Amino acid sequence: MNFASDNIVGGSAPVLQAILDANAGTMAAYGNDEISKRVRARFNAIFEHEVSVFFVTTGTAANALALSSAVPPYGLCVCHREAHIIDDECGAPEFFMHGAKLAGLAGVGAKLKADDVAAYLESLPKAVKQMPPKALSISQVSECGLVYGLDELADLGAVCRAHGLSFHMDGARFVNALVSLGCTPAEMTWKQGVDILSFGATKNGGLMAEAIVVFRKDLAEALDYRSKRAGQIISKGRLIAAQFEGYFAKDHWLDNARHANRIAALLSQGLLRIPGVRLAWPTEANEVFPIIPKSLDQVLKAAGLLYHNWTELSLPETERVADHEVLIRLVTSWATREEDVRKLLEVASSEAAQQAAE
């Protein structure tokens, strides 16, 4: 039973079939094939906007290259202090921004509030010795499993416009947030002021399928060249694009995310019925963050469950993890079975019953 992440499973059947279909015959190289053209047109339709789309193989490449288009080497990108771009990408954004800096701000649940971002921007000296802020980057879903609502996105977009910042969204779990909100892709992005999006499919059924979706043409101007220099112009580009064709067909991407979110909700509800277990943050997408007794943590691991312990840095002020407790992260995917959730809950319930009897 593996709840370590949603990138531990392979590709879904429609995605794999699309790759097989695209594999036959010969097609133009480097993304000039008909499949890539069709998929770019599909992105336009999905987002109800003319967009520039750049296919890449990893989320790190998507984030680093997206930010490199928005932030000059002397600039500053504001993000949460636990954002993936600052904690988990080995300096790739700074490297591709050629020395630009990431500034991490605090926020409960790894989310940023518009007022806090505005206050930080207004506190910065305007002298040349201070790197000027050029972009804001948020994670949707956040690193603590929370989803920015449309009003929150609109408020952040307004701050970006008022201060001349580009607005980047790290959408590694974009569709999980989308189905959680029940809105359209347009409503969750450019209609709220988002300028550039790292659109992830790898965690939701793709093999290695990521895209940079650009809503502002000026930010797209150099991305072909930046992508080439980063080794992300793939010679057999049709096999990357084909994954998106299978992904989008018959709303497969939405169905996958709905399943992952539903399974996470079942897991969350089941855990809350176990004595001594509570949630650090609400379950809003496909990640669950329970605070559990250390004894239960040991029992779960002994039973073969795989998951990660998590940081307490973004807990609400009213919450703390006691010495006898541990905060963990459980992630569900498009392939997680209800049976796996039942097994986890059975182990946890048995341990709770045993503790109560002692």
Rank of each mutant, 00 (worst) to 15 (best):
M1L: 14
N2G: 06
N2K: 12
A4D: 11
S5V: 05
D6Q: 11
I8G: 06
A13Y: 13
Q17F: 08
A18S: 15
A18H: 01
I19Q: 07
D21L: 09
A24M: 12
T26Q: 14
Y30T: 08
G31Q: 04
I35G: 03
S36H: 00
F47M: 05
F47D: 04
V51S: 06
F54R: 05
V56P: 00
A61Y: 03
A61L: 08
A61Q: 07
A62E: 02
L65I: 09
L67M: 11
V71N: 02
P72F: 08
P73I: 10
L76N: 03
L76S: 08
L76G: 05
C77T: 14
C79R: 05
C79Y: 01
H80V: 07
R81Q: 14
H84T: 12
H84M: 08
I86L: 15
C90R: 15
C90P: 05
G91Q: 10
A92Y: 08
F96P: 01
G99I: 12
A100K: 06
K101L: 12
A103R: 14
A103W: 10
G109K: 03
D116S: 13
D116N: 11
A118S: 15
A119N: 10
E122A: 12
L124W: 01
A127Q: 10
S137D: 13
G145T: 03
L150K: 09
L153F: 07
A154V: 09
D155P: 01
D155N: 14
L156F: 06
A158L: 12
C160A: 10
R161E: 13
H163F: 14
G164M: 09
G164I: 08
N176L: 02
S180R: 00
G182H: 01
A186V: 10
Q192S: 12
L197Y: 06
S198V: 11
G200I: 01
T202P: 05
E210H: 07
I212P: 01
E221S: 15
A222I: 05
Y225T: 15
K228Y: 14
R238D: 02
I240D: 02
A242V: 08
A242I: 07
G246M: 06
A249Q: 15
K250Y: 11
W253D: 08
L254W: 11
N256P: 06
R258G: 08
R258Q: 12
H259W: 11
N261Y: 00
R262M: 07
I263F: 00
S268V: 00
S268Q: 03
G270K: 01
L271G: 03
R273T: 13
G276V: 07
V277T: 09
L279K: 04
W281M: 00
P282V: 04
E284W: 04
E287D: 13
P290V: 05
D297A: 08
D297F: 10
D297E: 14
L300A: 05
K301R: 15
A303V: 09
L306V: 15
H308F: 11
N309Y: 08
W310V: 00
L315A: 03
E317Q: 13
T318E: 15
D323C: 06
D323K: 13
H324A: 11
V326N: 03
R329P: 03
A335W: 04
T336N: 04
E338H: 13
L345M: 14
V347I: 15
V347H: 04
A348E: 06
E351W: 09
Q354L: 11
Q354P: 00
A357V: 04
A357G: 04
E358P: 02
